[in-house]
Design a protein around this nucleic acid. Sequence first.
DNA 1: TTTATACTTCTAGTCTAATGGAAATATAGG
DNA 2: CCTATATTTCCATTAGACTAGAAGTATAAA
Lengths: 98, 98
Amino acid sequence: MNQELAIKRLSELGHSTRLSIFRLAVKAGDKGLPVGAIQSELGASASTLSHHIHRLVAVGLIEQQRDGRILNCVANLDAMREVMAFLESECCTQLYFE
Amino acid sequence: MNQELAIKRLSELGHSTRLSIFRLAVKAGDKGLPVGAIQSELGASASTLSHHIHRLVAVGLIEQQRDGRILNCVANLDAMREVMAFLESECCTQLYFE
DNA sequence: TTTATACTTCTAGTCTAATGGAAATATAGG
DNA sequence: CCTATATTTCCATTAGACTAGAAGTATAAA
């Protein structure tokens, strides 16, 4: 994983509403949960939520699957693990290669 | 580690200049490196660098030790590991406790 | 085919971050 | 003391993020 993408993901995760969205998605498991459920859980306006979810999708942390009228948000754990692996290998030790 | 602090640290790391500062500090080891060395490495203005370093210090990711006129910036790896542990335990698995 | 539901996009206001020049502060050396 | 170096603080500007209401789109149901 390159630093540019890692930075984008870190900055998306570094926002209270968005981290909460991601955690709800993780908790919801493979099938994810509807945007509406996130909204009632977090209590922000629909447009604001949509905006944050869009940003998470843009950096690959969330994926969406439509089921009729409902759009389910699914956490992409691989993307999160990539971020963690980047932090581990590039930001915690003196012995990385350039 | 609580979510609020984790978010602050993530958002600080989610910035190109600041992540580079942190990585330089990690690379520099226990004694860290001077603000001036960071400046010549990254090529931003002194005031901008000082601002970013201040933010990293504020969330505990960087510590500073003065040596005469020189201020050395040292990476706080424990703080980074706390962030990673938070991501691991709270943001990657369904089985966390609330 | 009309109506309801679920969500997004548009638009606009407000706030905060990022940037760097200039002035200020801290320390060291002559 | 006076000067040089290292860094910060102050200040102003610019850009981008956050927020939410209103209008628009997609899908389903009656």
